[in-house]
């Protein structure tokens, strides 16, 4: 078994804290737009704006939008992670405004994972 480092423990603590806040905040879904330098240069801001516009149009209240830094997969940015409460997170890659709207309508609202854009399942 690989040795657990202090950084790993800090990361686990943050992940548990985030999952807990999702439950306590009364939110059903958390959408994370990755906003490292690579993500921003690739269009992450447009992706987040498209998400917020779609939420406004649908009048959705139970979705938490958050941002995070680079996760080390710069070539596949913009990345977006969708975490439905009680399910494993899905990370989508090469996102743009249209893909974000599709993921929002079909995955976030409809519960159907958009496999054609998905990069990974599970925690970062």
């Amino acid at each position: 078994m690989p040795k657990i480092k202090v950084e790993d423990l800090k990361r686990i603590k943050e992940e548990v804290k985030k999952a807990t806040s999702l439950r306590e905040g009364g939110k059903r879904v958390k959408v994370t737009v990755h906003m490292g330098t690579c993500g921003i240069a690739s269009g992450a801001r447009k992706v987040l704006n498209a998400l917020v516009s779609a939420m406004e149009e649908e009048g959705v209240q139970d979705v938490m939008v958050t941002t995070s830094g680079c996760i080390g997969i710069c070539s596949k940015e913009p990345l977006v992670t969708v975490e439905v409460l009680g399910e494993e997170p899905i990370t989508y890659c090469y996102m743009d405004e249209n893909k974000m709207r599709q993921v929002f309508k079909r995955h976030v609202l409809g519960g159907e994972i958009q496999r054609q854009f998905a990069l990974a399942k599970g925690l970062e």
């Binding site: 801001r45 987040l48 704006n49 939008v65």
Partner: peptide, 9 residues
């Protein structure tokens, strides 16, 4: 857009 992105996140 930059400021709203920061505020939303």
């Amino acid at each position: 857009s930059t400021l709203t992105t920061l505020i939303v996140g």
